[in-house]
Write a protein that binds this DNA or RNA. Structure first.
Length: 855
RNA sequence: GCGGCCGUGGCGGAACUGGUAGACGCGCUAGCCUCAGGAGCUAGUGGGGGCAACCCCGUGGAGGUUCAAGUCCUCUCGGCCGCACCA
């Protein structure tokens, strides 16, 4: 070992050692409890970014910690390798998506290896590899047989200039990102997975996910959104037709002042065929694209069809029928009734089109005859007014009576509705898993035979033309029908990449098997004990994976419902952004900060506009490349910084100073062990009784730190774990080193520091362990246990307050009663002065904590 | 627009179930040392006042509950994440 801390040298050598020894290869072993740690696998975009470094550092700490606790740990890595960026690269750089993707994987694999992660690389998978997607196709066919797959028409964003389907992120303010053309909604026949078959279960089972963050469960609950309501039929006036609406506020029916159809409602489309103005209104709505955010955020607009509907409870009353841009076709029946007084959107709409606003719920305690609605709808509880036979009832009672009456008249039906929609998985793209289906003129839709899987993507494709390359490939799609043998065509859509990531955690259990999963392997390893990834996946990816696991259970692949027993969602990595005078984004490495806080371009010296801290993104160039940090400081410094500055669930501000702090700490730790001020006794030296009290305090600190760090790691409080280890290090630096027995206490302390930081900074810890005279790898050393006798303190400090303000602290033996505490508190001189002779009214005592004297 | 989360010194943050606010680190200040290094060591560091012991004010803002509030409640302001074809 060198005398200087040289991460470049030791990190490479320990990584080689771990790999040589195969220390992180996972094997099924019933003699030990298993622990499956998984971080969300990366999209191979080119280089790893700081978000990856953070994610994989967190996971690696857990993996190494659990190993030290005696668990048989599975910690695999792979690539979420299909996706749009590869096709964009193919267009822009003329490289084939596969070439681009595999090159990126090679680069990123090398970068990850330099982080010293305790991964089982023998299980590496890439979703774009036929060895993976073959099994995805098999799962799809199984789901099809089980009735979980169907086809239906649904909307896509259509770029009329590029003749291409656009992803939502490719639609910017209603226009295609490349062509700038106004986007249209266009209907296509697409494949859907019946996630709604599990709506109730996906919702109910959230309660059992005790090791998931509460907020993620809440978000999923709101996303699935079960609501009990009423489907009501309205008759059109002077036409023999009806409109069905869905509502959860049928108690407010008496306040209805209009009906509104979604622009994509079949009846709206039917009317538009004979109404050019309506057709153009619908076309305008369709230009909002398909994203719900865009639709709901847009100014509320409607088109008056001039048709009227009859109110089901007040036969004489006629309501106007509108087509409105804020009504979603995908939810309920695609039609609503508007009650402006008690729904904000309806109110905005009514004010704009000068419709009636009839209050029908009076807030509790208000004067029913004087209820008026201004700019805000009243959505709370209350008593019904202006509501015929339900006047005077509560919201719940009113609902019940209206439902009963309309059901009795067969004008309505109670219904439970979920906001959750079935999952459209068709993508009109090349770089995805082919959907194993053949379309035959005679037989219709025919699944590809399982013996013919995988349906492999053709390699000879060109991206010169817009649209899906699979569709205009000269030969690929032309095949014989698997059923009748006549000429037929392949499905040219590929899967949504969320399909790929919905079962990869199961594939890791048996990554080379020639079926999707091997029963014994998934039985042993699943569920994932700790899943770690970004909060941005809180809903879709996690919900789809939960669905997939259920679907795989139904089709006999696994025996469980919930794939992730524990979930941790990390925050993002942020950095300031920089712009030159002409508005161009600049990389942090090209900017120099001056002492006065201003910033200039390093090369030209021209001024730079410093933006706020925000999530690191390529588009704003506010990124710091992990490779630069690892080259300069080593992986352990990068890892330590990732863990020490912020709690992992919160966003992390990248700071060069913080990195330097981590680097300096590791340097001083190295010196403490490599260049000790005193010679240490050999390993295993027993610490004798009757130590100097100051040394006993040091030992107490050592053992309290074991307890503290253990608890911190269990609870993902990695930043506090780091703080505690540093406190211990400070304590060891200050200990009275000449006292009798001090050297064996120092040895104990240094060994504990080394073992506690092992999961966080594994390379330096291995080196320190070796320098401390041990020959086995630290990766094999069990987690330290604290000496409980030393952890328990003999005396405690109590805070003493007078009228809630801290005035003194007192030391008492650990075993004191309320009387002792009160006497000691009142006896204190500071307390006497604060009381100023006033009479004591009350004394509150929490033993071991606080005494509050109230005067 | 809807749903969810977060706001504590100059900065990142600590404070388990309401009980000593600011642990640990960064930065800064002063001093020391030196084979001048991406060093190291010592002391100080929330704001205001005082020679001092000590006092007053302080957890985005405004109210409230309580002996006691960063923590609980109501309102409000600011930021972030998701919204179904980015991954």
């Amino acid at each position: 070992m060198s005398e200087r801390y040289n991460p470049r040298e030791i990190e490479a050598s320990w990584q080689a050692f771990w790999e040589q020894e195969g220390l992180f290869h996972a094997r099924e072993d019933d003699s030990r409890p298993k622990y499956y740690v998984l971080e969300m696998f990366p999209y191979p975009s080119g280089r790893i970014h700081m978000g990856h470094v953070r994610n994989y550092t967190l996971g690696d700490v857990v993996a190494r910690y659990k190993r030290a606790l005696g668990f048989n740990v599975l910690h695999p890595m792979g690539w979420d390798a299909f996706g749009l960026p590869a096709e964009n690269a193919a267009r822009d750089q003329k490289t084939h998506p596969a070439t681009w993707t595999y090159a990126n994987i090679a680069t990123m694999r090398a970068e990850l290896k330099r982080m010293g992660l305790s991964l089982d690389w023998s299980r590496e998978i890439a979703t774009c590899h036929p060895g993976y997607y073959k099994h995805e196709q098999k799962l799809f066919l199984d789901f099809l047989k089980a009735g979980l797959v169907y086809r239906k028409e649904s909307f896509v964003n259509w770029d009329p200039v590029d003749h291409t389907v656009l992803a939502n992120e490719q639609v910017i303010e209603g226009r295609g990102w490349r062509s700038g053309a106004l986007v249209e909604r266009r209907k296509l026949s697409q494949w859907f997975l019946r996630i709604t078959a599990f709506s109730d279960d996906l919702l109910a089972a959230l309660n059992g996910l005790e090791r998931w963050p509460e907020r993620v469960r809440l978000m999923q609950e709101n996303w699935i959104n079960r609501s009990e309501g009423l489907r009501v039929t309205f008759d059109l006036d002077a036409r023999d037709e009806t409109i069905e609406i869905f509502t959860t506020r049928h108690d407010t029916l008496f306040g209805a002042s209009f009906l509104a159809l979604s622009p994509n409602h079949p009846f709206a489309e039917k009317l538009a065929a004979k109404d050019a103005a309506l057709a153009s209104f619908i076309a305008e709505c369709n230009r909002l694209g398909t994203s719900e955010a865009a639709i709901e955020h847009a100014e509320k607009k409607g088109y008056d069809t001039e048709l009227k509907v009859r109110h089901p409870l007040m036969p004489g009353r006629l309501l106007p029928l509108y087509v409105a841009n804020f009504v979603l076709m995908d939810y309920g029946t695609g039609a609503i009734f508007g009650c402006p007084a008690h729904d904000q959107r309806d109110l905005d709409f009514a004010r704009k089109y000068k419709l009636d606003v009839i209050p029908v719920v009076a807030p509790p305690g208000s004067d029913p005859s004087a209820v008026t609605i201004g700019d805000e709808a009243y959505v709370g509880e209350g008593v019904h007014i202006n509501s015929g036979f339900i006047d005077g009832t509560s919201v719940a009672d009113g609902k019940e009576r209206v439902a009963a009456k309309l059901e009795g008249e067969r004008r309505a039906k109670r219904e439970v509705l979920f906001r959750l929609r079935d999952w459209g998985v068709s993508r009109q793209r090349y770089w995805g898993c082919p959907i194993p289906i053949v379309h035959c003129g005679a037989c219709g839709i025919v699944p590809v035979a399982e013996t013919d899987l995988p349906v492999i993507l053709p390699e000879d494709v060109s991206f010169d033309r817009p649209g899906n390359p699979l569709d205009h490939h000269p030969r690929w799609k032309h095949v014989a029908c698997p059923s009748c043998g006549k000429p037929a065509t392949r499905e040219t859509d590929t899967f949504d990449t969320f399909v790929d990531s919905s079962w990869y955690f199961a594939r890791f259990c048996s990554p080379r098997a020639d079926q999707p999963v091997v029963q014994s392997a998934v039985d042993y390893w699943l569920p994932v004990d700790q899943y770690i990834g970004g909060i941005e996946h809180a809903i879709l990816h996690l919900l789809y994976s939960r669905f997939f696991t259920r679907a795989m259970r139904l089709t006999g692949h696994v025996k469980l419902d919930e794939p992730f027993d524990g979930l941790f969602t990390q925050g993002m990595v942020c950095h300031e952004s920089y712009q030159s005078e002409d508005g161009k984004w600049l990389y942090p490495e090209d900017v120099t900060k001056r002492d006065d806080g201003s910033a200039v371009q390093t090369e030209t010296g021209r001024p730079v506009k410093v933006g706020r801290r925000e999530v690191m993104s390529k588009s704003k160039k506010n990124v710091v490349a992990p490779s630069v940090i690892i080259d300069g400081y080593g992986a352990d410094t990068a890892r330590l910084f990732m863990l020490s500055d912020s709690p992992p669930e919160r966003d992390l501000d990248w700071s060069d100073a913080g990195v330097k702090g981590a680097w300096r700490y590791l340097g001083s730790l190295w010196r403490m062990v490599a260049l000790p001020a005193v010679a240490l006794p050999p390993p295993g030296t027993v610490i004798v009784d009757g130590l100097d009290p100051r040394l006993n305090e040091v030992r107490r600190l050592v053992h309290r730190t074991i307890v503290g760090v253990t608890g911190d790691l269990d609870r993902f409080h990695f930043n506090r774990a780091v703080a505690r280890v540093r406190e211990l290090t400070n304590g060891l630096l200050e200990m009275p080193i000449d006292a009798a027995g001090a050297r064996s206490v120092l040895r104990e302390g240094l060994e504990i520091v080394t073992r506690l930081i092992g999961p966080m900074t594994p390379h330096i810890a291995e080196s320190l362990w070796r320098m401390l005279g041990h020959s086995e790898s630290l990766a094999l050393v069990p987690w330290p246990k604290a000496d409980e006798a030393l952890v328990a303190a003999e005396s405690v400090t109590l805070a003493v307050q007078v009228n809630g303000k801290l005035r003194a602290t007192i030391m008492l033996p650990k075993t004191h009663d309320k009387k002792d505490a009160e006497d000691a508190a009142i006896a204190s001189a500071q307390v006497q002065r604060a009381i100023e002779g006033r009479p004591i009214k009350r004394v509150i005592i929490v033993p071991g904590k606080i005494v509050n004297v109230v005067v």
